[in-house]
């Protein structure tokens, strides 16, 4: 299988879907000649023209609003919001409009649209260009929330998102864009609501998404030499959430650590804990469930502070050791 980057995998999904279905178009800021802030749509203007690669003014609410209107007429818009932080500008269109229409109109409207949005810290972009706001979107019934961690998943999940009849928030961690991975050639999709066991283990379950999957894997591989066998579950889609995979894993290992970059308070780690503690897995727990998350701070600019604001490999390692030893 060829190795391509996460950004190339996303572009490849967009490209193939636009070739396959003339209803698919992309709308967003600086997505033409510039190729988007992270280069994802590079070359697409030349291939598909400005009627299908629609560059807009800086008007985030109306970018999503336009996608909603087009979706209502049977199109398959893919909107790009340059940084996930700017979703806060378009929250009415995402939360009050796109998310609600199917229900509010008694099942008679469908809003098949995808909103792509780069998330996460690590680029020194500070408080308004570095957030991980997936929990905010998970709280709105009607939305689906996807956080791919590898090029393979980015492509397969994006294709599924474009085929889905609901509004899908597709969250791309910006530090992953240049990471490489194997991606099969040709048509494949990854179903929503199916978690992936990124590493099988017997001693402790880690549930992590996006870039945290990679950090957890690096730590788990190191600790394996010491005989600590960690299982890593990547939910891939937070809505719908594969609760069975998590419950099964915790029932096996008896220990749970959730790792996400999003802030702690009301973050989705709490949701996972609630799922586990009200399931059969509760009986198998032999340690308190723990979460390691972004701190409850705006992402700072300074490199030292920025690093301190979100979980790092050494934090994950410390947490794992604490849980395994039973010392917190």
């Amino acid at each position: 299988m060829p190795e391509i980057t996460y950004a190339e995998a996303i572009r490849s999904a967009l490209w193939e879907e636009m070739k396959r279905d003339e209803r698919v178009f992309i709308i967003g800021e600086d997505i033409g000649r510039y190729g988007g802030a992270f280069g994802v749509t590079t070359g697409m203007l030349d291939e598909f023209g400005d009627k299908r690669i629609i560059e807009t003014p800086i008007s985030e609410p109306s970018i999503i609003g336009a996608a909603v209107g087009a979706a209502l007429l049977g199109m398959r818009p893919v909107a790009e919001i340059m940084f996930m932080d700017f979703v806060l500008l378009s929250l009415d269109q995402i939360g009050n409009q796109a998310a609600k229409m199917h229900y509010m109109f008694g099942g008679k409207a469908t809003v098949p649209l995808v909103v792509r949005m780069p998330s996460g810290s690590g680029t020194g972009a500070a408080a308004q260009h570095s957030q991980s706001l997936e929990t905010l979107l998970m709280h709105l019934p009607g939305l689906k929330v996807v956080t791919p961690s590898t090029p393979y998943e980015a492509k397969g999940l994006l294709r599924t998102a474009i085929h889905d009849l609901n509004p899908v928030c597709f969250i791309e961690h910006k530090l992953l864009y240049k990471t490489k991975g194997e991606v099969p050639e040709g048509d494949y999709q990854i179903p929503f609501g199916v978690a992936d066991i990124k590493r099988a283990g017997k001693d402790l379950t880690i549930v992590a998404n996006g870039i945290m999957v990679h950090k957890a894997l690096a730590v788990a591989n190191r600790l394996a030499d010491e005989g600590i066998d960690v299982e890593i579950i990547d939910p891939r889609t937070l809505v719908p959430l594969d609760t069975e995979a998590i419950i099964n894993s915790v029932s096996k290992t008896g220990k749970l650590l959730i790792v996400h970059e999003a802030c702690e308070t009301a973050g989705w780690a709490g949701e996972i804990m609630a799922v586990v503690s009200s399931s059969r897995a509760f009986d198998y727990l032999d340690a308190p469930m723990r979460r390691l998350t972004g701190k409850n701070v705006p992402i700072p600019y300074n490199r030292v502070l920025e690093r301190a604001a979100v979980p790092q490999e050494e934090d994950i390692e410390r947490e794992i050791r604490a849980i395994v030893k039973g010392v917190y």
Partner: peptide
């Protein structure tokens, strides 16, 4: 295409309808 409970909420949908 429906009424809207958010004042002005439907206005940008017209862009997408027009584009479509």
């Amino acid at each position: 295409l429906g009424a809207n409970g958010i004042v002005g909420g439907g206005i940008p949908h017209s862009l997408g309808v027009g584009l479509a």
